[in-house]
Design a protein around this nucleic acid. Structure first.
Lengths: 362, 362
DNA sequence: CTGAAAGCGCTTACAG
DNA sequence: CTGAAAGCGCTTACAG
């Protein structure tokens, strides 16, 4: 307390002025200011905010009134510095790309839970780039988050795997990471794909094409497995030419769909592997003047936002992204609160939403 | 240094074990561990990470090697506690709803700049709810962010206005807040709307309808103003029945579009006030069997994601959300670094993207 | 119910 | 080029 005394001799009123071309710094009030203005000790004031039941009601009232009056907000940064795992009240989120509505929905669910549980949410995009993801993970570690949620960019990620083994709290959402015990919130991709394809098969289609995602990713594999199983169970043989793997981007899907459309013996139906792929298929059909479902039936994986704006509205497998996000945040917070808890592997059931693109409804 | 000595007598190896149903806490390494393992003082180690040029290269090498070996990551939390405005290296973002692709694009732009500039991004959704927005603002203040970016839910927000007057660093994006000097990154809504409507007028339309957003919001007002000015300049009188105000949600827009479609003397063209409104208009046309642009031409405000999946692809005013976000983050960081800098009011020029829905191209 | 003291993990002058 | 000391704004035992 030798050099710094600015906050000690400062008056009650915020001294800042807001001038057109410049403003003076806004130094937030601290506990010290409250001590000065109330005559109550630091310890007790701290209790007012953290253990009010341990404080005499008159003291409580006095401190609260003053705090309210001066607009005191306790520093979460200072609080966080205290030892104690799981007390930081921040979580991190690393998603591939917030522009993808699938992730936007998940993010929304996570944020809702975080806000209502008093957690701050630090947010990053990995861009599906392992290096960038690593950079994000490190940034979150430096922030000393209580835990983080992410769909791992790669199934085998040694870096993240090691960190988890060392005790980093992680919840994997949508995608898994191999060879490590970790809490997960996943969708049952195989079942979802199975339902989608079975729906098409039952409508009489014998040539059902599939536009898949990045083949390395677990979700892509599972969806392909569901596609195959449906054929097996329904007794329809698969023409291998009808399976094309892409990267879940719209332009790629549009190109692959174009290939299908220009085959000598084209498929009569297509199962698109994710939301952007579905959109790409629509784009290709628009461009080629192909009508859905008359010329080709379509069922897509993932709900497509604003389905009704598409013509025809697509039949899809809805993963309810909001629910996935909500659950992921709940799992993470539960884990933070009890590191000893048994492993959680939550599976969200995907559901078939029948609209017009499959031809079932017409 | 009396009671706690856990980190002092801990070995080099992370002591955690990851057992199936529980894991032991992961206590991150601290400066103290590095001091113990290198024999170098705290001060010097701190310099290694912050002012390496002031450290002898042999020391530098030794410390870095050890830090790397043990996976030491400095705590941004501890660093942040140090006095000094603008050094926290965190910024906050409060947006109405990340599920809206307009905001997702902005968020993406902000996050890219934040990550590459070494800022953490704390993220919240306000849901267009003033109370929730206030809760978010308070949360960010407690986090002692260096500044925050937001499109104010209300044009007149006394709470935020007061905080800005007290020196809180804020950048308003997309929407303004009244009666206060604040940095802004806005789109020229009036000009954008003007161009959209003029485009329609020039194609010969005499009855151009408009589905607007929440009338209280500045962007809605400006777009309506552009709509009117275009009519004035082009010498076409406006039928007041052709202007309907909504709330920028798709279902509302669908309903309002339905009204237009069932008028005795329906409009021959429509100018939709935002992205979701455009989608709602498409949905209404699909439902009513109305063809765009043959039966009614359409130009929308805001780029619509996956435009090519729509039939026909819409002609829109593109605000380039990513650019808006990028610029907002840059403005905020510039302001953090120099609070005395003159006010910044950045305007992003919207551009007309002609596709098929206006009929110009057919 | 309350306060003094120690400490969280860093950075920042200050003195060498 | 380096280290000891003080401090950032809180919380947490400990002692009354």
């Amino acid at each position: 307390m030798a050099k710094k005394s600015s906050s000690t001799n400062r008056s009650n009123n915020q001294p800042s002025i807001n001038t057109p071309g410049g403003r003076s710094p806004h130094t937030p009030y601290t506990l010290k200011d409250l001590v000065r203005d109330t005559g109550v000790s630091k310890s007790t004031i701290s209790r007012v905010f953290n253990n009010p039941e341990k404080v005499k009601s008159s003291t409580l009232k006095k401190v609260r009134a003053k705090a309210e009056e001066m607009g005191y907000q306790p520093s979460r940064v200072a609080r966080r510095l205290q030892a104690g795992r799981g007390k930081a009240k921040v979580i991190g989120l690393i998603i591939p790309d917030i522009s993808n509505p699938f992730y936007a929905g998940i993010t929304r669910g996570i944020e809702d839970v975080a806000l209502s549980s008093g957690y701050a949410l630090i947010f990053n995009n990995s861009d599906e780039d392992p290096d960038r993801q690593r950079q994000c993970v490190d940034a979150l570690r430096m922030e000393r988050v209580d835990g983080m949620i992410l769909p791992p960019v790669e199934e085998k990620d040694e870096y993240i795997r090691e960190l988890i083994l060392k005790g980093l709290t992680v919840v994997c959402v949508d995608r898994v990471i191999q060879d490590v015990q970790v809490d997960t919130v996943l969708s049952d991709n195989k079942k979802g794909a199975y339902r989608a394809v079975l729906h098409l098969l039952k409508l009489g289609h014998k040539r059902v094409a599939h536009i898949g995602g990045i083949p390395e990713i677990s979700t892509s594999k599972e969806r392909l497995a569901g596609y195959k199983k449906a054929h097996r169970d329904f007794g329809v043989t698969i023409d291998p030419e009808l399976i094309l793997e892409g990267d879940s981007r719209q332009v790629t899907a549009e190109r692959l769909m174009g290939k299908f459309l220009s085959m000598k013996n084209p498929p009569t139906a297509v199962f698109t592997g994710n939301n952007l792929t579905t959109l790409g298929a629509y784009a290709a059909c628009n461009k080629h003047g192909v009508r859905i479902p008359d010329d080709i039936a379509l069922v897509g994986y993932d709900e497509v936002p604003w389905a009704d704006a598409l013509n025809p509205p697509p039949t899809v497998i809805d993963q309810s992204t909001y629910e996935i996000g909500r659950r992921a945040a709940e799992v993470l917070i539960a884990r933070i609160q009890d590191p000893e808890k048994p492993l959680i592997n939550s599976v969200v059931a995907p559901k078939l939403v029948v609209r017009k693109s499959c031809g079932a409804d017409s």
